[in-house]
């Protein structure tokens, strides 16, 4: 991997940001380089390769949820495109990791 992304387990289909990654950053994935289409905050995830709707999301080599839509390589993987196999996730306006979550 290049740039600020960690592969936590060989079986994983997501990478984890170890620092804030800006929009437009080129990331070298196995399938070739991609540019981030949005900033990825520290500890958020991107797709390591293409993920099909219905596929299990693997992190630490373990399932952490199910893709609710097709996910492109390098795309942000979060509550907008994966769901829990157990209980629905509760989130507020700041779930993208960028919005402040307070009114001005």
């Amino acid at each position: 991997m290049t740039g600020p992304f960690l592969l936590l387990h060989d079986a994983d289909n997501v990478l984890v940001a170890r620092a804030n990654a800006p929009e437009g950053l080129e990331v070298g994935l196995e399938s070739g380089p991609v540019r981030l289409t949005r900033p990825i905050p520290m500890a958020h995830k991107i797709a390591r390769h293409a993920i099909a709707a219905g596929e299990a999301i693997l992190k630490y080599g373990m399932p952490i949820g199910i893709a609710t839509q097709d996910i492109a390589p390098g795309a942000h993987v979060h509550i907008h495109n994966i769901r829990s196999a157990y209980t629905a996730t509760h989130a507020l306006q700041d779930a993208d990791g960028i919005s402040a979550g307070v009114s001005r």
């Binding site: 949820g65 994966i82 629905a88 996730t89 700041d94």
Partner: peptide, 26 residues
């Protein structure tokens, strides 16, 4: 937790990059 309708998961967990209760659990 299924009966209560929420997992042990706060909104700030999602802002911090956690997407699901099983990801938080691991």
């Amino acid at each position: 937790y299924a009966t209560l309708g929420y997992g042990s998961f706060a909104a700030g967990n999602a802002a911090g990059g956690l997407s699901t209760i099983e990801e938080k659990s691991l």
